[in-house]
Amino acid sequence: MIWLICVCGGLGAMARYVLDVSIQRSWNNWRGQNPNFPISTLVINGIASLCAGIAMMSYYSQSVDMDTTMMFIVGFLGGFSTFSTAINEVLSLIRTRKFALAIGYGIATVAVPLICVAIGFGIAMLSNPA
């Protein structure tokens, strides 16, 4: 099982890289060459939280087994999401004296995933009423 979790983690990291590059390119095209808001990590962590909420509620409703849940949440989503990068981006905004943006991004870094995981719980509850 540990090897499957490791493989899923690697796949999640690859998916994060591809999505990160895609989001940054789109954001740079829209905002110009010097974007101030590090949107890609926030979007990726929001998607990961939404998926984690759906997966956990699916597990709680017993429609998915524990091994599959662990491979997906600990493996894939663990490799896909990244809280440490988000915190580093907050500190980078502080270093460049973008204090208001750093505060807003810091709050969003916590609030967006919390909201997304709650939405994921709701989606799973609606699709699997127990």
Rank of each mutant, 00 (worst) to 15 (best):
M57N: 09
W30H: 02
A118F: 05
V74E: 12
V110D: 07
P129V: 00
C6M: 12
A130I: 05
L77S: 09
V112E: 04
V7M: 11
G9Y: 12
W3P: 06
L50F: 03
A102D: 02
V117N: 01
M56D: 09
G104S: 15
G78Y: 13
S127R: 07
E89V: 13
T69Q: 10
I107R: 06
P113M: 05
A102V: 00
A108W: 10
A111S: 14
L42V: 01
C6G: 12
I47P: 02
F99A: 02
A52L: 13
F121E: 06
V90Q: 12
F121A: 02
F37M: 07
P129A: 00
C51T: 09
Q33T: 11
T69M: 11
I87H: 07
A48F: 03
R97P: 02
K98F: 07
P35K: 01
N29S: 10
T82C: 07
Y105G: 07
V64G: 05
V64H: 04
L101N: 04
W3Q: 12
V7L: 14
M66Y: 15
G106Y: 09
I47R: 01
G32F: 04
S40C: 08
F76A: 08
M71H: 13
G46A: 03
T68Q: 13
A111D: 10
A52S: 13
W27R: 03
V21M: 09
L50C: 05
S81K: 08
Q24F: 11
L126V: 03
V110T: 05
T82H: 07
T85M: 11
N88K: 11
T68A: 15
R95D: 13
L19H: 05
F99D: 05
T41S: 14
G75F: 13
Q33R: 12
S84R: 06
V117T: 08
I23W: 00
W30N: 01
E89P: 14
N34G: 02
S61M: 09
A124M: 03
G78W: 12
L101W: 08
S40T: 05
L101R: 11
S84I: 07
D65C: 06
V90R: 15
I103M: 09
T41Q: 09
C51A: 13
M56R: 08
S81C: 04
D67Q: 14
L93M: 14
V117M: 03
G106T: 04
I39H: 02
P35N: 04
I54F: 05
A102E: 01
G46W: 02
G120R: 01
A48H: 04
I87Q: 06
